[in-house]
């Protein structure tokens, strides 16, 4: 009674061509090598944005906790997360690992890859803001805790929701200031 519709002959075939052409190849792909030999180690650009969303939620909780010890402790945890991201890049941060473990397997492959340096720069900006908040808060300036949390929340929110690359906006201003003071 075995209906022999499936023949076990071709094992090596990958089921990548369904009958309904759900993904027909584009009529004209961009000319080969549009990446023009840029840095080879590109990362999925959705990773830093998901990471920023996680960070934004933590910062919102910090803001709700006010100026007490709990708020200071949570801000210190966030600063430590930014430190990891600054040292290892956004893809190596704790949020980046969460993205790869939980989110990325459920998404389609990325259509483009992103240079890992801009998100890493943004992690450094986050570290400076939250780190200053932790240091000032520990020194008794408790208003610095919600202030730093609010500033970092704006940056993380803009990154998560709008894809704003803070590094791109700030890099040139920093460069102009440095070159002006140098010469």
């Amino acid at each position: 009674m075995t209906d022999q519709t499936s023949t076990p002959g071709d094992d090596g075939r990958t089921p990548d061509a369904p009958t309904s052409d759900g993904r027909a190849p584009a009529a004209r792909t961009p000319a080969g090598g549009t990446a023009s030999g840029r840095s080879p180690g590109g990362i999925d650009p959705r990773g830093p944005r998901v990471g920023a969303a996680i960070t934004a939620v933590l910062l919102a909780v910090t803001l709700l906790l006010g100026t007490g010890g709990a708020a200071l402790a949570l801000l210190a945890v966030i600063a430590a997360l930014f430190l990891v991201g600054t040292v290892r890049g956004a893809q190596g941060s704790v949020q980046g690992r969460v993205f790869r473990a939980l989110v990325q397997p459920r998404l389609a492959p990325p259509t483009e890859l992103e240079d890992p340096r801009p998100p890493r720069f943004a992690q450094g900006v986050g570290l400076v803001i939250t780190g200053a908040g932790v240091l000032l808060g520990a020194a008794g300036v408790v208003a610095a805790i919600p202030t730093a949390a609010a500033l970092a929340l704006v940056a993380a929110f803009l990154n998560a929701v709008f894809g704003l690359c803070l590094g791109c906006e700030m890099y040139l201003l920093g460069l102009r200031l440095r070159s002006r003071s140098a010469g």
Binding site: P30, T34, S36, E112, D115, P118, C168
Partner: peptide, 16 residues
Amino acid sequence: SEVCAPCRRTAVVLSA
């Protein structure tokens, strides 16, 4: 600048 992801996308659009 090198620290700039939209620069890459813009370069692709304008060179095309």
